Deep mutational scan, measured.
Amino acid sequence: TETRTFTDEREARRFEQEARDNGKDVQVRESNGKFEVRVK
């Protein structure tokens, strides 16, 4: 599991989409204006 934290939602979404395109299981959590993207 890899976790990346972004402050920019667009960057978080781009990373999320890229991971999904690669067939990964992705979860995005938002807290305090930060976006935590977990990739399995």
Rank of each mutant, 00 (worst) to 15 (best):
E9G: 05
V28F: 15
K24S: 09
A19M: 15
V26L: 02
R4G: 03
R14E: 11
T7C: 11
K24P: 01
R14K: 12
V37L: 03
R38K: 11
K24W: 15
E36Y: 14
K40C: 15
S31G: 07
E36H: 10
E2T: 11
E30S: 08
D25Y: 11
N32Q: 08
K34I: 15
F15V: 04
R20D: 01
D25A: 09
S31I: 15
E18N: 08
R13V: 05
F35R: 01
E16C: 14
T1I: 12
D25W: 14
S31A: 12
A12G: 01
N22W: 08
A19V: 05
Q27H: 10
D8P: 00
F15G: 01
S31V: 15
G23V: 02
D21A: 14
R13M: 08
R13S: 05
D25G: 05
T3G: 04
R10A: 14
Q27L: 12
F35V: 04
K40A: 12
E11N: 05
N22Q: 15
E11S: 07
Q17K: 11
E18P: 00
N32Y: 07
R38D: 11
K24L: 14
V26A: 06
R29G: 06
E11D: 10
T5K: 05
E30V: 13
F15I: 03
T1R: 07
N32W: 04
R4N: 05
S31T: 13
T7Q: 08
V39Y: 06
E36V: 13
D8C: 15
F15C: 08
R20M: 07
T5R: 05
E16F: 08
K40W: 15
V28I: 11
E36M: 08
A19I: 04
E16N: 00
R38P: 02
R38Q: 13
S31L: 14
D21W: 08
E9S: 05
V39P: 02
T5Q: 08
R20L: 10
R29I: 15
K34H: 10
E18D: 09
G23Q: 05
S31M: 14
R29K: 11
A12D: 01
R4P: 03
T5C: 12
T1S: 11
E11Y: 03
R29N: 10
V39K: 01
K34S: 09
R29L: 14
E11Q: 07
E16W: 09
D8G: 03
E18K: 08
E11W: 03
E2K: 06
Q17H: 06
Q27R: 08
D21K: 13
A19R: 04
N22T: 09
F6H: 01
G23F: 05
G33H: 04
V28Q: 02
D21G: 09
V37E: 02
E36T: 09
V28N: 02
Q27E: 15
E16D: 01
A12S: 02
R10P: 06
R10I: 11
V39T: 08
E9A: 07
T1V: 13
G23N: 06
Q27Y: 14
R38A: 12
K40T: 15
R10V: 12
E16A: 15
N32I: 03
Q17D: 06
G23R: 03
F35I: 09
R38M: 14
E36W: 08
K40D: 11
K40E: 12
G23D: 04
N32L: 06
Q17M: 09
Q17L: 07
V37I: 08
D21Y: 09
E2W: 13
D8T: 10
T3F: 12
E36A: 03
E30T: 08
V39N: 02
V37P: 00
G23K: 05
T3M: 11
D25T: 11
V37W: 00
E16K: 00
R14I: 11
R20I: 10
R29M: 13
N32F: 07
T7Y: 12
R4W: 15
V26K: 00
T5L: 13
V26S: 02
D25Q: 11
R20Q: 05
E16H: 02
T5I: 14
R4I: 11
V26W: 02
D21I: 10
N22G: 09
E36G: 00
K24R: 10
V28R: 03
E2I: 14
T3I: 14
G23A: 04
F6G: 03
D21S: 12
T1M: 12
A19H: 05
Q27K: 07
R14T: 08
F35M: 02
G33A: 02
R13A: 07
N22I: 08
E2C: 15
A19G: 04
K34L: 14
G33K: 03
V26G: 01
V37M: 01
D25S: 10
A12Y: 03
E16I: 14
D8S: 10
E36P: 01
R38N: 10
E9F: 06
E18W: 15
D25P: 05
E16R: 01
D21Q: 12
V26D: 00
T5H: 10
F35T: 03
D8E: 07
T3V: 15
F6P: 01
E9V: 09
T1A: 10
F6I: 00
R20K: 09
Q27A: 10
R29S: 12
G33I: 00
K24T: 04
R14N: 08
D25M: 10
T7W: 12
Q17Y: 06
F15R: 02
F15Y: 12
E16T: 05
V39H: 02
R29P: 00
Q27V: 13
N32M: 09
E11K: 05
R14A: 14
D8M: 02
N22Y: 08
D8A: 04
E11A: 09
E11L: 07
G23E: 03
E30M: 12
